[in-house]
């Protein structure tokens, strides 16, 4: 019995391995995708934006609006630690902060473009629990330094071998919960099955919620680094 338990313990993945796998659950290393963002605010009409995105590694990302027509070609670019916003109406590229909200929703620019948690956090596996009936690993992620956006993330990842994230609660330096991400709707999109809906809900602003739905994903796409530059952003390349 004791040797069986030892085997099971040895087989359990480490916290780092779980987070590393979860980081790649939705989008792979290099991918292009089509996304629909729905922003819900109490007392206001629902806002729906569709966009096309390009991702190369953890540091290069580009998202360009395709609908509604009046916002078409609005684009966000991430290159290393810098993020830019292109507004076609003014034909201007402006630098924006990674903590500023993305497209007026509950995701920050950093949430959209920096999908890798393992780079910024030291994870600890604190236990196993069921979340909405799904067996999960519960992890506590502590920011490696004080420049990381959220000081602490409580993270639930599926324990069924897929390592799909289920939920993440983001906490500020003071320990207060700022927002929660719910990951759902596992479906075959592109070459494999994956979670396709990410819903971010503010813990402070009642009823404020933003949903990202991946409509199409293409993995392992070869991309030229030159599309991830502010000048390309302006040219609409």
């Amino acid at each position: 019995m004791s040797s069986l338990l030892l085997c099971l313990l040895l087989a359990a993945p480490t916290a780092e391995a779980i987070v590393r796998q979860a980081d790649r659950a939705v989008l792979g290393e290099n991918a292009t995708y089509t996304l629909r963002m729905t922003v819900e605010r109490p007392g206001r009409a629902e806002r729906v934006v569709e966009m096309r995105g390009w991702k190369k590694g953890d540091d290069l990302g580009l998202v360009r609006y395709t609908a509604p027509a009046r916002e078409r070609n609005t684009a966000y670019l991430r290159n290393g630690d810098s993020t830019w916003l292109y507004l076609p109406a003014g034909e201007k590229v402006v630098r924006v902060g990674p903590k500023q909200n993305f497209g007026g929703g509950d995701f920050s620019n950093g949430d959209i473009f920096r999908l890798s948690l393992i780079k910024d956090y030291d994870p600890t596996l604190v236990g196993e629990e069921s979340l909405d009936g799904i067996p999960c690993y519960r992890l506590d992620l502590k920011a490696k330094d004080r420049s990381v956006a959220y000081d602490r993330v409580v993270y639930w990842v599926r324990r069924d071998g897929t390592f799909y994230p289920v939920r993440a609660d983001y906490h500020t330096l003071s320990g207060k919960k700022l927002k929660s991400l719910a990951v759902s709707k596992i479906a075959r999109v592109g070459s494999r099955e994956r979670p396709t809906v990410l819903a971010m809900e503010s813990a402070l602003e009642t009823g404020s919620r933003t949903t990202l739905e991946f409509l199409a994903i293409e993995d392992d796409v070869k991309m030229d680094d030159r599309i991830f530059t502010p000048s390309a952003l302006e040219k609409g390349e």
Partner: peptide, 16 residues
């Protein structure tokens, strides 16, 4: 009222 800020170091912090 809750305040949310980005600290000069980069982290998000909040306070009621």
């Amino acid at each position: 009222v809750s305040f949310v800020i980005q600290t000069p170091q980069g982290a998000v912090n909040s306070r009621d």
